[in-house]
Amino acid sequence: MSARLTAAFAKGHPALVCFVTAGDPTPAATPAILDALVEGGADVIELGMPFTDPMADGPAIQAANLRALGAGTTTADILAIASGFRARHPDVALVLMGYANPMTVRGADWFADAAAGAGVDGVICVDIPPEEDAELGPALRARGISPIRLATPTTDAARLPAVLDGSSGFLYYVSVAGITGKQSAALTSIEEAVARFKLTADLPIAVGFGVRTPEQAGPIARVADGVVVGSAIVDLVAAHGAAAAGPVRALVAELAHAVHHARSVAA
C-alpha cells in the first residue's frame, strides 16, 4: 500500500479528501484546480475519471462528467493530468475514482501499469464490489496501488470483512444510502457506523457523500479519520469554469481548517 496514503492519515489530525472531475471544464484547466486543492490544504486528492454513465452520482457530478467528456477528455488526458500532478506534488496522495468500464477497457494490467506510471496511490472503482475483485484488484495490488473500497449504511457486520479484504489505503464510508451530493446523514448515525467499522477495520475511515460545508465537515472529522468533499467543489468548478482555482482554494482552506482542527475545538 502506498506510503503517501499512509502518511496522509498520520499527520496528527483528520484528513481532508477532495474530489474533482478530471477534464472539467477542460483538461487544460484541471491542473490549476488540483493545485488549488493542495494549496487550500487537502491531504488526499481524488481525481474523478469521467464516464458517460455515472450511475452512483447525483446531478452535480453527472454534469461535471458530461462537461469533461464534452471537452474531449480522454483516458490519456487523465493520466497526463495525474503525471503532471505527481511531478508538481511529490508527497500528496492521489487517488483515481471512477467506473469499471473506462478502467478495464484495455485490460486491468494496462490500467494498473498506466496508473502506477502516473504516480497514482489508490483507485476507487464504484461498480466493482468485492465479489468482482478479480476484475481489477490483483492488478492494482501487484503494482502497490491501493484498491479503496466503499462501505455504506447497508454494509452490515457480516459483510464488512469481505469489503475490507484486499483493500488498503482507507475505507470510504458512504454515509447515506444514495448518490453523491444529495442529502447528508445525521452525525449520530455516522458516529455509530464509524465505531462499528472500527471494530473490524484497521484502516483509516473517511466519510463522504453529502458533506458540503466546514460546518458539516468539522463535526464529522471529530468522529472519523477523514472527510471527503466532492459535489461542493464540483459546483464551484461549474460556476467558475477555468477560473475556478481561486474560489476552490478558498473553500478548501475553510474546509481544511474545520477538519484539521476539529479535535482541538470544544464540541
Binding site: 461498480d127 464490489p129 468482482e132 466503499l150 462501505a151 455504506t152 449504511p153 447497508t154 454494509t155 452490515d156
Partner: peptide, 8 residues
C-alpha cells in the same frame, strides 16, 4: 458490478 449500497 454494482455499487456497494446495492450489494446486500
Amino acid at each position: 458490478y454494482v455499487a456497494e449500497t446495492l450489494m446486500p
